[in-house]
Design a protein around this nucleic acid. Structure first.
Lengths: 225, 225
DNA sequence: CTGGTATGTGTACGATGTATACGGTAGGGA
DNA sequence: TCCCTACCGTATACATCGTACACATACCAG
């Protein structure tokens, strides 16, 4: 018998929590959270489904861990410089992370057992706001406003029934088709004169709204001082 | 045989799309969207599960219709008066509707086949902004900013791991327990000096942020004119 | 080598959405 | 009054999901 257990071409690497997490995130990134079943994940890793349960307690625990990986990718806001610059950078880091990992939208704030990267992130942002001169209450206002906007933007963008200006014509067509022509004149004008224009990308709206918010917060911070 | 089919105590009302919708929304309101299964819904209505499929095409169609009911509850912004007042009222109407129907958060913007109430709502809001002097592009900015905030606030509020100031102590305790003491000093200060104060209600943050946004939009509208 | 612990497997169960075929019933024309 | 037909509710069944449980195997300490 050729029991060459050393030179086996595929050494059949041991499973680990890290490998499970990595595969789960890759799978969710490309196929969505619905497609992430314990069975499909096991197939990717070429193990039996139940093997996963030696490394994650259950699917909930798996998702908790996946979310914490996303938080760790976001990092924490840099310390020095203008508060607006560093908070702005954080907002864009979140948007980018959520655009890499769309499945995480709607999960980021819902973990009842937040991981260390999650807590570290919140701690750092609050610290940055406090250092910028926001008192505790104003920091709460600012944090709520910023995160509502950031996650809300990701949510509405994710849920947009179209992606690029090319599709949007057809989508709008099928959306409005079952209804009488001219039933929604403002909506039609809006779609035709803005959304369907070449070069339109809803994602561009993000920074505009973000700056309105940052300027508004800066103003109330000044008056409070 | 006493075949009094008239005076039967429970006339066994016929099913209808309206009855199915009403029951589905009531069930989702009290028990969440996860608990809304075709089987549990059928049980509420005292019919066999498959009876539902005479009135809704499938679960997706059911949820589409439920979302449109929520849109119809929100209504459309009033025509007259200050634009800020009517847009502010709309924002609060959405928040209230989503607080009655938390399951709808995350679904409102994702319907690929929006119902009539949905389209009517969007049409009216765009119309109100245009009438207030926003050009098409500025209306797009404003709409994106407002809705991102409104839905984002609902999302983060929904996902908050605590509800009232009483719970928050325990929740914070269990959240921070597995980590070294003083690992997250800013977070701890924030929880202790703000969130755990008597009378704290995260919901109160909504109007503060909303007004920052409305003032910001008013300012850019003025400069554009 | 030997024994024990960590890791992977096979099988099975209850829940879910829904396809398909069937049975009852209401209501309108004869 | 009777029957026919269209509609409405039912019974059964299947694929897919998360995961409990008992067993098999692989690896490491003595």
């Amino acid at each position: 018998m050729a029991t060459d257990r050393v030179a086996s071409p595929e050494p059949r690497r041991r499973l680990s929590r890290e490998r499970v997490l990595e595969a789960a995130i890759a799978h969710a990134d490309t196929s969505g959270l619905d497609a992430l079943t314990m069975r499909s994940l096991a197939e990717m890793l070429e193990v039996a489904p139940m093997a996963l349960y030696r490394h994650v307690a259950n699917k909930e625990d798996l998702i908790d861990a996946m979310v914490d990986v996303v938080f760790s990718e976001i990092g924490v806001p840099s310390g020095g410089g203008d508060w607006k610059t560093s908070i702005r950078r954080r907002a864009i880091a979140i948007r980018d992370a959520l655009s890499r990992h769309p499945w995480a939208v709607g999960l980021m704030e819902s973990r009842r057992t937040p991981g260390p990267a999650n807590l570290r992130h919140h701690d750092a942002v609050i610290g940055r706001l406090r250092a910028a001169g926001f008192d505790v209450e104003m920091a709460a206002h600012a944090y709520s406003l910023l995160d509502s906007y950031i996650y809300g933007f990701a949510l509405t963008k994710l849920n947009l029934p179209f992606e690029f200006a090319e599709d949007v014509g057809e989508v709008a067509q099928t959306m409005l088709e079952p209804f009488p022509a001219n039933a929604y004149p403002n909506l039609v004008e809006f779609l035709r004169e803005h959304v369907m224009q070449p070069g339109y990308d809803y994602g561009d709206e993000f920074e505009y709204g973000l700056d309105v918010i940052l300027d508004g917060l800066d103003r109330v911070r000044d008056t409070a001082t």
